[in-house]
Each structure stands twice: as C-alpha cells, then as structure tokens.
Design a protein around this nucleic acid. Structure first.
Length: 519
DNA sequence: TGAAATGTTGGGGCG
DNA sequence: ACGCCCCAACATTTC
C-alpha cells in the first residue's frame, strides 16, 4: 500500500500544501510515498490547426490530453522538473515521470503499488478540473471507494470560491475585486520545505526526464539559458533580488522595457516554483509591506496589485471557464476579424515596421518572455491595427512564452481586444510611436532587439520612416530594405479599427451618424 | 494599464 | 493704450 502525490504545476518543496498533505498521510500511516508528474501533451509535433471559432467550443483543449505546451514552456518545464527532481533526490525520494493520459497512468500505478490515497494539486484550467473529475470517477469504478482522492487548491493565494460582490455574485471588474480582497486577506503563514520525506515504494521504476523529450530538437535555447534559471532556487533568487533592488521604484520602472524594473517572476509562478503567498510573505519580511497592509509605498503597492491581477485572472477563469479561448462578451463572436496570414506572420516575426512592436516580438522569440508594457502594445497592434482575432495572438503567446498561463494569457488578450471582463474600451488604440517615445525614450530597448535600427538617433528610432534621408544614410540603412516600412499607416488603421469596433457596439461611428442625419 | 480632437486661457508681438 | 492675432500650454470632450 502507498500514498500517491500527483503533482501539477507545483514544482517546489516549500509552502506546498499538496506535498505536505501527502507526506503527512504517508508518514502517519507508515506508507511509502509516490511523487508523480505526468506531462499530458504527448504529441507536441502535431501542428495545431487554427480555425476561426464561431461558437464557444473547446477547440484548443482536449479533456484527456490537456493543452499542447509550446516549445518555450516545454523547455522551462524540463529544467523545472530537473531542479525539482534534484530536490526530492536529496530527500531520498524519486520523481515518477510519465507522458500521456494522466488517468490511465494513475490507474496503472494505483494497481501496481496498491495506492490507497491520491493527493493532487490542480489548476483553474478547465482541462485540469476535467481530469480530476475523470480520475475521481475512474477510481470509484476501479476500487468501489477504497481509494481516496484528495484535492488541494491551485497555486493562488486567495480562496477563489469565497470572493463575492455585495449581491453574492462574481466580480467582473478588477478594482472592486481588489477592494474586496483587501477586506478579507488570507494569512501569510508559509509551510517550510520538508527536511525529510517518506521513501518511495520498493522497486519503483521512474523514467528518466530525457524520455519526456521536452527539450528542443534544434538547440535554439542558448539565449534562454543565459536569461533564466528555472526551478525553486531560481525563483527564490529572483524574488530576493527583485525585492532588494527594484520593488521600491516598481510603480514607475515597471513601465520601462529598456530597464529591468519588473520582477520576471511569471514563469516561476506559473510552474509553481514559488507560491504567491511566499511572495507576499517575502515582501513583509523584507520590510516592504506592513502586515496587515497599511500605508504601503507606491512601489510595493503596485507590485502587490500585480500579484493580485494574477489572482484575478485565476478567479475569472475559475468562474467563467469558457473564457479560456472564447470571448467573455459573446457579441464578439460576430466581430469581422481580418484573415491575413501574411500580416499575422509579419507580426510574429517582428517585421511590422513599428520598432517598439518588432522589438517586443523579437524579445519574445529570443527569450520566451516579453515586457508587460510591450505585451499591451503588440496585442493592441494585432487586434486593433491589423484587426486580427485575438486568439491568433493568444496562440502565438502560448507557443512562445515561458510563462504561458491559460488564465493570465486569456485575460490579457481579452482585455486588449475589449471582449473580456474589465476590458479596455473599444476606442483605446495604443499608438505604437507614442508608446515607444514614452516608455523607451532613448530607444535602448529597440536597439537591443532590432539591431538594424541601432545607429538611428533617439529622435527617429520609433518612427524611422520620418527620419531625414541623410540621417537614414548615416545610420547605414534603407527603409524597406534593412528594415521594413510600416505595414499599416497608424492614423488610417486607427480609424478603421474604431469604425469596426463601433459597429460591433451597435452604433455607427460619429461621421456616419452625421451623414445619415443629414440624409 | 490612451489618443486625438476640440475648447480655453493667457502672454507677447504687432499695428 | 488697445485690439487683434498667434500659439503654446493646459483642460475637456470624444472616439
């Protein structure tokens, strides 16, 4: 007999309720403990075909297999698993790895090792919930109730089921949600990392991590390796570093992609290498946040609010599971999206001709990450300037981000497209030139990621097509050759977007109203 | 967690 | 001295 911990994205020792619960169960019953992780997307090479969904349907999801992970996420997962495996080895444990349908694997292990108790931590993702349900049913059928399944809440700080507005409903706007959260904050007691674990069963045969084939076939990951340290140790380092160096100025520096003013904790959080509770606790321990919260500094307050945005994303997906790949506001299913694969490809490759957009897209491709300010800019560009379905953008982010997270990704894209909860008003169109000048005033960010433009002076770097010919010549470039001319004209694209979005609202744009009135 | 258009104000140049 | 125009600079409204 034994206890089985089915770990999801909770790849840490410290403050891990699922791990603690499973370890306690095994210890108190004097049973061995199996720690398992199942990579549930067995066919990563199969190309996801993208078809425009007209109705809300789980086109991208698959109940038994989960979502196919993108290459960047797979890379991160490999290293995160390697790090976690090392941690449990040091405690005399083994990480049981498998790939494929989780329910099948789990049932097989239950039979082989006489498992009496399964503990699992799952996420807010619909396929996670479906898998837990399927497992529950399968275990009941198999054992007639002899095997217990226990679930532990996902890696969020807040109790997502216990936050309601005054009408008892679900919040659909962030700020009142946040206000309410401040009145019912959970505790910041964190569980220490275990110093010992019950041993695995005799004869447990664990597959090697390499067999999961998570690493890329072609070695494109050299930049990634310089940029990131996946795993619990890396997550702790990042946190300590950020809180000591950057949190104080976070409220202004977070908007500067040319600086390192953000925490870059998103991938660590996604894979559960750190819990949001640990982050809040670390803020308190570092003296950045009084507990209970009182008169926080601007920097600490804004960072705390960002962590709460992540909670809000989980909350929204938990309560509105269809918003993973379908718009929260159903009328957006009727939106006249433009289908233009060539334009989409230029956006993906960072060849739009708008330097701040291209810098962001290339940063994403190289590092698996993009600065949040720039994410908003490139998203607005795809959705408003190019009028493409936001799901094209969400899918590309899903494939390329190391922090690809269903809840946050969907929330962010739906915010940009104006079709989600607390969405940006339809008329909010980012001007990529102004945004560049505001948030990358010297052009350093553009220079780093768009080397063709490196020699352009700051005055022109965000609109090279306006530069005098002599300046372009001195910078050693020809527009349309070394660097593309802008693929759309900003004022024109803006007007077209406004017209399309206004139509969706059921009201004609202002000039059309005037025309019809005159007629 | 916008941007552009439109409106208002006030100082200075100038006849 | 005065009115007029121009136009920053800022505020408000609109998309």
């Amino acid at each position: 007999m034994s206890v089985l911990l089915w770990l999801r994205n909770d790849l840490r020792l410290a403050d891990n309720p699922a791990l603690q619960r499973a370890a306690n169960l095994a210890q108190s019953n004097n049973l061995p403990l199996i720690i398992a992780f199942i990579e549930d997307a067995p066919n990563p090479s199969a190309k996801k075909t993208f078809t425009l969904p007209t109705v809300a349907s789980p086109q991208w999801g698959n109940v038994s297999q989960g979502l196919k992970l993108g290459g960047a996420s797979r890379w991160w997962l490999h290293h995160s698993l390697a790090s976690f495996e090392k941690s449990v080895h040091a405690l005399g444990q083994t990480l049981l790895l498998a790939q494929g349908n989780p329910v099948e694997h789990l049932l097989a292990w239950v039979a082989t090792y006489g498992v009496r108790h399964v503990v699992t931590s799952y996420g807010v993702e619909p396929h996670h919930k479906n898998q837990v349900q399927a497992l529950e049913k399968a275990l009941a059928q198999y054992s007639g109730g002899a095997v217990w399944l226990e679930t532990v809440p996902p890696n969020y700080w807040l109790p997502l089921d216990a936050i309601h507005n005054n009408q008892g409903g679900v919040f659909k706007v962030y700020s009142p949600f946040y206000k309410k959260v401040l009145t019912q904050l959970p505790g910041i007691e964190v569980l220490p990392a275990p110093t010992q674990l019950p041993p695995p069963p005799q004869g447990l045969q664990a597959a090697a991590l390499a067999q999961l084939q998570l690493l890329p076939a072609r070695p494109w990951d050299s930049v990634m390796t310089q940029w990131w340290q996946p795993g619990e140790v890396g997550a702790q380092k990042r946190t300590t570093n950020f809180l000591a160096e950057a949190c104080g100025a976070y409220h202004t520096e977070r908007d500067r992609p040319d600086h390192t003013g953000t925490s870059r904790l998103s991938p660590h959080l996604h894979f559960g290498e750190i819990s949001p509770r640990q982050i809040v606790r670390a803020m308190v321990d570092a003296g950045l946040l009084a507990w209970p919260i009182e008169k926080p500094t601007k920097g600490a307050e804004h960072f705390f609010k960002e962590v709460m945005w992540r909670e809000f994303a989980g909350y929204v997906l938990h309560h509105f599971p269809h918003t993973d790949w379908a718009p929260f506001r159903p009328e957006f299913s009727e939106f006249p999206f433009v289908t233009d694969t060539e334009a989409l490809q230029r956006w993906r490759e960072g060849q739009t001709g708008y330097p701040i957009v291209d810098a962001g897209m290339r940063e994403l491709w190289a590092t698996g990450w993009m600065h949040n300010r720039v994410r908003m800019i490139v998203a607005s560009f795809l959705v408003k300037h190019l009028q493409q379905d936001w799901r094209h953008g969400a899918e590309w982010f899903w494939d390329t981000l190391v922090d690809a997270d269903l809840a946050s990704n969907s929330l962010g894209w739906q915010w940009s497209a104006g079709c989600g909860v607390d969405a940006a008003p339809y008329f909010r169109v980012f001007n990529p030139i102004l945004q560049g000048k505001k948030f990358d005033p010297l052009g350093d960010y553009v220079r780093r990621w768009v080397p063709e433009l490196a020699k352009l002076p700051a005055d022109w770097i965000h609109e090279p097509w306006m530069a005098p010919p002599l300046t372009l010549y001195q910078a050693g470039m020809t527009l349309g050759d070394a660097y593309p001319a802008p693929m759309v004209d900003h004022p024109t694209a803006r007007k077209k977007a406004l017209a399309a979005f206004a139509q969706l609202r059921g009201t004609a744009p202002a000039d059309e109203r005037a025309l019809s009135r005159d007629a």
